[in-house]
């Protein structure tokens, strides 16, 4: 009967593998060589080239951004994609514009490089992101934060103040003084 048990296990294993297949299919096969896990505090996270504002530094307090940046990006992604809301504060393009890092030759480092701002932590934490399959990982055009600094809160519909700036400035610019 032990052979039957073995086969039963094999069967279960097969079903299990089957469920994991889709994930395995796109996993990177070039595994990194083992190296000592570095404590997080020793990760070199380069200072961004420019700051969103004097008070907050980043577009939201740094603690908040470290923990929840994906929520902001995800929210902005759906707002922009489906509703055409194109505020700059939480746009991925502006993340890249501020946080892009240049190497010794003055070239921007790509996301495959561990010095890339996103890659630094994501490699450390082994969290794979597929943003850059489609999005540019280096700045292409200059920041437009200054010209379109609207939508101060990430959830325009939760907070009444949200987006006042843009709604009010646009008519100001287009109607008489």
């Amino acid at each position: 009967m032990s052979q039957a048990k073995l086969l039963q296990r094999l069967f279960a294993l097969m079903i299990g593998t089957l469920l994991l297949l889709p994930l395995a299919a796109t996993a990177d096969e070039d595994e990194e060589e083992e190296h000592e896990p570095l404590p997080f505090s020793e990760l070199v996270i380069t200072e961004p080239a420019q700051r969103y504002s004097e008070e907050t530094g980043c577009v939201a307090p740094e603690e908040e951004m470290r923990r929840n940046h994906m929520e902001y990006i995800l929210h902005q992604r759906d707002e922009t994609m489906h509703k055409g809301i194109r505020t700059r504060q939480f746009s991925l393009e502006e993340c890249i514009n501020c946080h892009a890092i240049k190497d010794d030759n003055g070239e921007y480092v790509r996301v495959e490089d561990e010095r890339h701002f996103c890659a630094t932590c994501h490699t450390y934490a082994s969290v794979k992101i597929d943003c850059f399959q489609c999005h540019s990982d280096v700045p292409v055009r200059a920041s437009r934060l200054r010209t379109q600094q609207s939508g101060l809160a990430p959830h325009p519909y939760d907070k009444p103040f949200a987006g006042k700036l843009a709604s009010e400035t646009l008519p100001l610019l287009t109607t008489e003084e």
């Binding site: 055409g84 809301i85 194109r86 505020t87 700059r88 609207s150 325009p156 987006g163 843009a166 709604s167």
Partner: peptide, 12 residues
Amino acid sequence: TPAQAKPADQPV
């Protein structure tokens, strides 16, 4: 003046 000026924070 654009007829349909849409502020960046308003949905289409």
